[in-house]
């Protein structure tokens, strides 16, 4: 099962490091990653495989929200199907 993780907020040091460590600790595998910095805003998108995740997706989503609050970013992880459903016919 795959999910999309997004990190949005003001650019800062070590964002990718913190997020990828967090994911590694939960056995979540990063399949693809892209990032852009628009003005001073940072937007990172990751496609992750959560098949081996040690926590269920809904819990992972809650943990991501708290991680985001801790580092001053908005972090979401969502089932990939929501984007497929909304943006492709």
């Amino acid at each position: 099962m795959r999910a999309v993780l997004t990190v949005i907020g003001k650019d800062n040091y070590g964002i990718i490091a913190k997020v990828s460590t967090f994911l590694a600790e939960r056995n979540v595998n990063i399949l693809d990653i892209s990032q852009t910095v628009l003005d001073e805003y940072f937007a990172m998108l990751m496609l992750v495989d959560i098949s081996g995740s040690s926590v269920p997706l809904s819990e992972l989503a809650t943990e991501c929200t708290s991680l985001g609050k801790g580092i001053g970013m908005s972090i979401h992880v969502q089932h990939e199907e929501i984007f497929n459903a909304m943006h492709s016919v």
């Binding site: 999309v4 997004t6 949005i8 693809d32 892209s34 852009t36 937007a43 998108l45 496609l47 979401h76 990939e80 929501i82 984007f83 909304m86 943006h87």
Partner: peptide, 12 residues
Amino acid sequence: MFNTNEILETIN
């Protein structure tokens, strides 16, 4: 990979 704009649009 997904289209960045589409993902950000949903989140927005």
